[in-house]
Amino acid sequence: MSYLVLVFLWALFYITHSIFASLNFKQKMKSWLGKAYVWYRLLYSLFSTVLFLYIIIYASAIEKWALLAMTDMTTYIGFMLAALGTIIMVKAFKNFSTPKFVGLKPHDDLEEKGEFIHTGIHSYIRHPIYSGLILIFLGYFFYQPYMSSLIHFLCLLIYLPFGIYFEEKKLIKLFGNQYEQYRKSVPSLIPRLTKKAT
């Protein structure tokens, strides 16, 4: 039962993430909040952070069901995967304004279209943050090879096709043909060994 609750919590986290990031929901919130909408991103970040921490705390409190033997090798693999994922995410965030991304710098993201980012690591994969998360969650599973860790990882994998679909639908609406061409030439999560000729 505890594992079903964990799955439900992740479903709640990912569903609210997609809803709160959608343009339609943001427009409704702007009409309701008025000028206070500039703080929407911060409120969303706080909500997501609290829910994420609750999921992690809940998962750490439920009964441990080991799926693999914990060895030096599994620990090493876990650290290496998580480190690689962290490096990818750090490189991805270099293309963003962190205060704006988190919401510490109040702004109206419906008025400010934002920059179309396709350089740096984004020239190899369209969603490096998601790629980094996959590696971090997989690394965490090898570091703590419990059923709860596997659920963390599998819930992420199940959500990603939906998350990417809704995110790219929004990006196409914002950037039009420019993003369509980018999507055709750059893979989503796994980089090609060589760049596709344009």
Rank of each mutant, 00 (worst) to 15 (best):
Y76W: 14
A59L: 11
Y58A: 06
T74C: 13
N95C: 03
Y58D: 09
T71R: 12
M70F: 06
E63N: 03
D72T: 08
P99H: 06
W65K: 04
A69D: 06
I88T: 08
T71Q: 11
D72L: 13
M80R: 14
T75G: 15
Y44H: 10
L81G: 04
A83Y: 11
F47N: 03
Y44K: 08
M89Q: 15
D72Q: 12
K100V: 00
L84Y: 06
G103H: 11
V102D: 07
A61K: 13
T75K: 15
M89T: 12
F52A: 03
S60D: 12
K91P: 05
L46V: 14
T74L: 12
T86R: 06
F79V: 07
V50R: 04
L46M: 12
F96D: 00
I57D: 14
I55N: 06
T98M: 13
Y76Q: 13
F93S: 05
Y76M: 14
E63G: 01
F47M: 06
L46Q: 03
L46I: 14
M73K: 13
L81Y: 05
S60N: 12
I87E: 05
T98N: 03
I56V: 15
D72A: 13
K91R: 15
L53Y: 07
T86V: 11
K91N: 11
T71N: 11
N95W: 00
D72C: 05
F52K: 00
T49L: 12
V50M: 03
F101P: 02
A66S: 09
A92P: 07
L68V: 01
A61R: 14
A92R: 02
T49N: 04
L68Q: 03
K91Q: 15
M73N: 12
M80H: 09
Y54W: 10
V102Q: 08
S97D: 10
S48D: 00
Y76I: 05
K91Y: 14
I87R: 10
A69R: 07
S60Q: 11
S97Q: 00
